[in-house]
Nucleic acid binder design. Sequence first.
RNA 1: GGCCCGUUGGUCAAGCGGUUAAGACAUCACCCUUUCACGGUGGUAACAUGGGUUCGAUUCCCGUACGGGUCACCA
Length: 549
Amino acid sequence: MDLNKLANALIPDGDLIAPEEYENIFPARDVAKGAEVTRLAPSPTGFIHLGNLYSALADERAAHTSGGVFYLRIEDTDEKRKVEGAVESVIRSLKYFGIKFDEGAEIDSPLNKYGPYYQRQRAKIYRSFAKKLLSQGRAYPCFCTAEELDETRAKQTENKETTGYYGVYAKCRNLSEEEIYKNLQAGKPFVIRLKSQGSIENKRVFRDAIKGEITVTENDQDVVILKSDGIPTYHFAHAIDDHFMHTTLVIRGEEWLSSLPVHLELHEVLGFKPPRYAHTCSLMKMDGDTKRKLSKRKDPELSLDYYRKAGYYPLAVVKYLMTVLNSNFEEWYLKNPDGDYRDFKFKIDKMGKSGALFDLDKLNDVSRNEISKLTPEECYAFLKEWVDEFGTDTDREHFSDKEYILKILALVMGAGGKKKRKDIERAEQGVRIIDYFFDDSFKPERVYRSDAQTVNALLESFAEVYDPADDNQIWFSKVKEVAGKLGFAVDNAAYKADPEAFKGNVSDAAEILRIAVTGGPNSPDLCTIMGILGKDRAVRRLLDGRLNA
RNA sequence: GGCCCGUUGGUCAAGCGGUUAAGACAUCACCCUUUCACGGUGGUAACAUGGGUUCGAUUCCCGUACGGGUCACCA
């Protein structure tokens, strides 16, 4: 069979560039030895996921701690799943978390010498190589219909055989010249398949940058490399793109491990040296009693937008992810609480070998810590940004009074003093936590632990003696005075010695005041709060806090 | 089901043949504070399982169980 003739009949394009030429078009990168070239290669399906950030962070760190390059390539080979605006969304979302690309799709950079960075725009390149494989007899056209493929799969499943297009099931593998041209003449659609040389009998050891030595079985599947629309499958595009874009380290989810044999054979057949691979464990989620991979479909709450809406501090999300990525980051972070996480020496082989459960408690903790490091001014800016985008009209109105909010934040954050507070965990919660400073959003829950008579008496008498001019000490002595008259212990030691003799400790009395004024049992220094509210409002709240007898 | 990967406290995890088996989050107790927090100290709590190899296995090998991934003209 004249293979060149066949290749021409199958892929006739006259404007194709000879495959060898591409080595000159995309020369080796000018990067230092040991520098990693990594990439994020999402398909533009519109949904940016925490897993993307996780992987992007690993890519970005691997590249930048080694003086390499991190670029963005768009894998848009599946027309059906394309979503408008998805690329911008990826870039915007990652930028929000402080991750930037050096090069790639929609990135304005002088480094963009390996494009186009959209796979659809690279069709010519793939076709050129597919044609080469065809003429070498390492690929062939397949005219099987979806129905036929379904049938063989059904048969294979029934016989408990491995499913797929291989061996005797590769019907088109040995089509005669005559049959091929007849099908072509008839206008039958076709795909190009790899003519695999492998056997599943052959196993070899492969070194993964994260998992270490793993066993890979040779590929024996005649996988599709060019779909009937002339667009490559992921496998083929991956081999060609990562070769010509000179990727040194491919970091991807472990779901790709099973197609590694295909990629290895593809590289071999194309005459490319494969990159190093790092297969990361997926982030897991608890679903009932079992762990499950975080899924785009099932877990929309784990989209990056979710974290923005909840108002997580972006740097906190990144730092949390760093602790998952490299567990020794946590130790470093403890020693360098104010350090830039970029100064930490990220190591790809330190990544965990098993899937980590996403730990919201820990994220919350990191986020609280990060926010507590802000100045009230910075915190205001952070909260304001959230309020502008996700808050209610009432919130926006509150935040227009910057001075007032700043006063509140100074208190809530324990600014200036050595007693920092960590009350704000994320913007959404932070905004709600200061609601009681405004009458229109004050929603008290008056659940006291004392009886109505005591509560009312305490509130009334304190309202009478309260004076905003009092400093903290005088303020508290008044609390004691009032509480003492009602039978609360004024002396801690006395209370501890005989709790039965009192209605409660001063702290119990203070709690009553606190609940009346703020609506709940947890809030910063009450004296200051009352000061910020002003005498009228403070007194009114004390009185309003009374219970119906 | 075949193939591949994994399994240390509730969670994230150090560990790489000999350790009182780190640390962090969560949780509990106490201290500090005559209020809420913050902070400090301490506690509870773990090597899936059965066989080997070895003077000695959490660490190495094999089996079992459990969990995960994957078997497309999707990536």
